[in-house]
Computed example of a mutant assay.
Amino acid sequence: MTDPTGRTLYLQIVDDLRSQIASGELRVGDPIPSTTALQKQYGHSITVVRKAVEVLRNEGLVFGQPGKAVYVQATPASVEAERVSVEDLAQQVADLRTQVMELRGTVEQLYTRLGHPYPNDDAGQPARHRKTGT
């Protein structure tokens, strides 16, 4: 379902509510209008309105439960900042993995230079740190 401009109806609602949240018209902690109120405001079916709210929920902008109010949880800017932070964290983890593999290679070389075999588990794989239990 689209309007004459070609924009999907539920995305029109998403864009408008997202804009209200970004501008502060709807603030974090505020309830968004009910499904019925949104249906009347935009003149679209309940299905279209629910889809729009679902998109906002998936974006992390709102939260709620069926039969209860849906509240603004974050602004688009804060969600974007968090997403960037998660991407940065993923890159840091990848960098650390590379460093660990390089260190492992160095440790294996040191064992070889000392004339000792690198510790392996029963399957021939390098042993992992194990807790000595009681």
Rank of each mutant, 00 (worst) to 15 (best):
F63N: 12
D88A: 06
N120R: 15
D88Q: 11
A127F: 06
L96D: 07
L17G: 05
L17R: 02
G67D: 02
D95E: 14
E54D: 11
P76D: 04
M1Q: 05
T98L: 13
L38E: 00
G133S: 14
R130E: 14
H44N: 09
G29K: 03
G29L: 04
A52S: 04
A90Q: 12
H129T: 13
D16R: 15
R7F: 04
T106M: 10
Q99D: 12
S78M: 14
E82L: 15
P119Y: 05
A22R: 12
R7W: 04
Y42A: 01
P31V: 08
F63I: 11
R128M: 12
D15R: 14
L17T: 02
E102K: 15
T132H: 14
Q125M: 08
V53F: 02
T98D: 11
T35A: 09
Q12A: 09
Q39L: 05
V62S: 01
T134M: 08
L11D: 07
A69N: 07
E25Y: 06
Y71F: 10
E80Q: 15
P119Q: 04
Y118T: 08
V55E: 12
L17H: 05
T36V: 14
L96C: 09
V100F: 13
Y42L: 02
K51M: 07
Q20H: 12
L110R: 15
R97E: 14
V86T: 08
I46C: 04
